[in-house]
Design a protein around this nucleic acid. Sequence first.
DNA 1: CGAGAACTTGACCATCGTCAATTTACGTGG
DNA 2: CCACGTAAATTGACGATGGTCAAGTTCTCG
Lengths: 248, 248
Amino acid sequence: MPSTSDTHALTMLVRKLESIAILSDEERQAILNLPAKTRVLQPGQDIVHDGDKPSQCCLILKGWACRYKIIGEGKRQILSFHIAGDVPDLQSLHIHTMDHSLATLTEATVAFIPHDNLRELIAQHPGIAAAFWRDTLVDAAIFREWLIGMGRRSAYEHMAHLFCELYLKLQAVGLAGSYCCPLPITQVDLADALGLTNVHVNRVLKQMREQSLITLRGHTLVIEAWDELSQVSEFDPTYLHLEKRAAA
Amino acid sequence: MPSTSDTHALTMLVRKLESIAILSDEERQAILNLPAKTRVLQPGQDIVHDGDKPSQCCLILKGWACRYKIIGEGKRQILSFHIAGDVPDLQSLHIHTMDHSLATLTEATVAFIPHDNLRELIAQHPGIAAAFWRDTLVDAAIFREWLIGMGRRSAYEHMAHLFCELYLKLQAVGLAGSYCCPLPITQVDLADALGLTNVHVNRVLKQMREQSLITLRGHTLVIEAWDELSQVSEFDPTYLHLEKRAAA
DNA sequence: CGAGAACTTGACCATCGTCAATTTACGTGG
DNA sequence: CCACGTAAATTGACGATGGTCAAGTTCTCG
């Protein structure tokens, strides 16, 4: 039987899935009955490593994480950012060998849920399976948009686009204020996500500040001019597929 | 009742899913009973367009297709290549608005299967649902690898990596010979996939030929030195997740 | 054989990377 | 509260990868 704190953890998963699909009372209860082990991790700590064959999934409750891969002599590419409610290694349910790593970017609270229980859950609740599937599809849509940014946008446009994306994602889960949101990552992290160097990220940030598009105080991003920011990056939020969707 | 040619089309889907999961006789039959409308398309023709809300999925039977998106003043980013057996818009089952387009690159034969029938199929056969889900997850894994190529590899390494990937994907479905495979696309297509210009693609190809890594005659890619090609691009096929996998 | 598409090449240029030196911010212990 | 040490941010000078523009050349196919 889950402890109080575990139930709290699973409430986060219920909330996430309800942003994707409509859950029945029974489905909601089935999720809350999942076993989960909660842990607090230090910043920069690996959760799952490239090549692992995990037997559990990780639900982020607090803080930020990222998927990344190291190639060559230590070059890192960040593949995605993850925040509270995300299950960044959901794919490990169906793809047994990790082809990248997952790590915290900040101090983070995460809950681990065994694959066996998740498999049982989706076997008995096709609506939940569909919601999970949809979640991984939105994930893929974000990868596609990052590909476009890397391939066909300038550093300036690409970064503006990322800021728009992060702001909307945080807003969707209630973690953003009015045109401002936490951005608890370093310029090196930003560079590794955008496929740039930290030096160039710094230069682009300077430019964006000079043009009064954003300010970045401490670890808070303030969007001073949303319209301009989304316009220079041709930001179209369609790919985030944020609209709520009934279970199949 | 499906016509003879439609049954032939669906055999392709059975074969594809059997490369992902083990199907029961019943599941195999259920797939073969799907209705499918087959059409032959000209090269460069759109199958589904950015913004559409399709009510059917597209199974490629012959030829090549790609997913792409146009941004700015006509800049195109190709997001993925697709060959016989692929269902490149499977995500439209769960994500209703297309956030990119799908088009043929060559003359192609494709079959269309209504969403309703696919939904019924997966509702009644969870094993097939799992196989489809897994397929979209491998798709996402390939996006991630392309992201790494764009962000952290040189043009030369990136292109070498793509050639390794395409060769293995074609080999997996029996469409490649011994270190040679069809590559029926233009240098402009290659450039739009790699995030480069056609001019630079041409220069990199010249370099690869000079170093006797590949030759590209007509629309056939010959890999003259697999070991070197995979080594310079640090190619690790794990992310293609080609090993066969039992249905859940 | 002719026309258009695809490919190839050269000259020049811009974005972004590299290297290295400061400066600033921040957490810890005194 | 201040001093100190380390990580993060910032800046400048210079260089390289890849883009732009433009002019051929070769292929393909009717």
